[in-house]
Design a protein around this nucleic acid. Sequence first.
DNA 1: CAACTTTTTTTCGGGCGCCAAAAAAAATAG
DNA 2: CTATTTTTTTTGGCGCCCGAAAAAAAGTTG
Lengths: 389, 389
Amino acid sequence: MARIDLGRATQLSPATITAITSDMLEEGLIVGIDADEPRAPLARGRPRSLLAIDGSAANVISVRISVNRIDLAMADFAGQIFHSRKVYYDATLADRGTFPATLTDAVRDFVAAAGVDPESVLEIGVASQGIVDTNKGEVVWSPAFAGRDIPVVGPLQEAFSARVTLSNDTNMITEALHWSDPERYSGTFAVIMVDYGVGMGLFLDDHLFVGASGAAAEIGHANHIPGGARCRCGRSGCLEAYLADYALLRMTQALPDVTDPASMPVTANTFEELHERAEAGDAQVIGALLQAGTALGYGVARLLAVIDPARIVLTGAGIRAYPFMEQAMHTALEDALVEDLRRSLTIDVVPWNEDFIRRGLIAQAMRRLDETLVIATRRVRTGRSSLAP
Amino acid sequence: MARIDLGRATQLSPATITAITSDMLEEGLIVGIDADEPRAPLARGRPRSLLAIDGSAANVISVRISVNRIDLAMADFAGQIFHSRKVYYDATLADRGTFPATLTDAVRDFVAAAGVDPESVLEIGVASQGIVDTNKGEVVWSPAFAGRDIPVVGPLQEAFSARVTLSNDTNMITEALHWSDPERYSGTFAVIMVDYGVGMGLFLDDHLFVGASGAAAEIGHANHIPGGARCRCGRSGCLEAYLADYALLRMTQALPDVTDPASMPVTANTFEELHERAEAGDAQVIGALLQAGTALGYGVARLLAVIDPARIVLTGAGIRAYPFMEQAMHTALEDALVEDLRRSLTIDVVPWNEDFIRRGLIAQAMRRLDETLVIATRRVRTGRSSLAP
DNA sequence: CAACTTTTTTTCGGGCGCCAAAAAAAATAG
DNA sequence: CTATTTTTTTTGGCGCCCGAAAAAAAGTTG
């Protein structure tokens, strides 16, 4: 990228850009590129001299924890992922005693296999399914663990010099959408992910919103029908109990809605199988999807009434069958909410992509890294050592 | 207030405070006070020289529109309300054709009666019951009007040189709470006002949240029971249809829940009368309040699941009977939401005070005024005229 | 009452971030 | 080779803020 374009992008004057980039060059955060840019024919003037982020300046790691599996990825300072792997563990044995060691070992092996200096890893972003407490750095409850209150940030922080951050996985999808298309995904929007459970991410007034305790946006456990269907969380009538994989199976088999979610035979392919059956015309599945669509419509209506987002994004494996839910969802939305409150809404259906969470984690880690580096840069220039008061 | 305290409050150095206050003294925004502060005995050192905001520097007006009534108040630059009046109009005749003139005339008369130069009024803050569109400056729908889409900001803006802002009335309560006790009411909290309808204000991450279209926080019309009780908005099962005055009357009289809300004989004293009957032991009223408490509990539970506020404030005339609703509300909350999501919650019950809205409007107007004055001050110092590009 | 202490306020010089204008650099066009 | 175009750098300056020192205005002490 040329300095003149940086100026346009940041709204700073060329003079300022020169000052800032020359500092960054000195510190090795960016490098000049010798290779000439392909210039348009008939282009006159001094050629642009391109700058690039020096990938080797630092590394960040993303860690995604799902049931039985830890997905690891390492990105350089340019955001390029150059190493990744999946590690398997037994979720039924993972609790606050055993999992921290499992996790730190997995990350340590991963760093060694990547062949980078452990000190070069400055940020580790962790996302987990379930309810997380960002402030405490613990996973309060998750299907990925047998126990509760699993510490994640603490153990990693001790084992590595990096800063560690724990996030809700749907929040990371929200972040990834924002970075992938800032034009479209800015301001105030909500992401609803229908998958193993039902998660939500909120982007409000141009910022990711995480709530007071960092456990925000658990729309899956917002009540849909008082005293309704049994949910995995032990309560009755949660939205999730009408939308998640186990809920769809239960409705397909016309089982009573007090049937224990844990007894339903869900697999990683449940949504895909149900979708195929629906396409084949299976009336039971289609009926279940209609019920799910209705529940989703009520959930969206309540969200609109409380938050008034300009856009709601639907994603997750469970949204594959959206065509079978769409009509019921819109009907429910119209039944549930006065027109004034829904006239400005846009609904996006984004095909599910596992990579979203990883990209969100890395985007967030990079931003945090940038913030610390700005401060570090200031110290260097001022001549203040980091040990000074 | 002494300069040294300003420094402590703003985290600026004494040197900076002197620089800024001397500019403000020059512009007449603040004045020095000659009268000595009562000093503590044994106090040594140079006595503080107190500064005060010069109230005469500017004026702001707050306008609250409710059914049949417009409440006007004028405050000076120090935030002191020195003139107020109520003006009555006929809500059944007020529509987009007639109301703008009614409003501008009322404000014009009010300014004349206050005896201030109309040019000295720099901000007008308007709050209305119902659904408002802050961006357009129109009241989309309100019980205070016969018609829909009533323009408010446009007509006032044309009639006066002031900046005009339209807000949701519950948002102004939220703002007022924040200013009255910033320690307690900061970060992320929600205000639910049960009154003629059910309104909500959200304060998220230290900012008042107004949603994408400025119509946020209409929790009253968030669905409680799909296909449930008839609401004023024309839909069924809204939270309001279980909590508002007409809903309580309907439940007290054991009328079918499809009974038209408009047919219920509500008055300004309905809540007070119901509360008295409950205290006298009227089983029908107590039963209705239990139902309302349950509905409120579900509403609070859904809000917690979506937003995760650290605190929820309950207020409004309808909350007078809270003691009769409390038990049912907590039971509903426990039934509706998994414990992890409600363990960090505090519920405040704040006795209703009509003055909240006025204070919120004035606080908001003052802040806006401060922002414009900072820019104006900069212009003065720089010597740039406001006509310069 | 002069010298010292305490507390608040002001002055002075300087750093940082940003900018406009001018200058320099590096290319093309004729 | 000169003019033109475009990008980058240099220069000087402004605004905001700060730390240190000085000044101001009181009380305390012998």
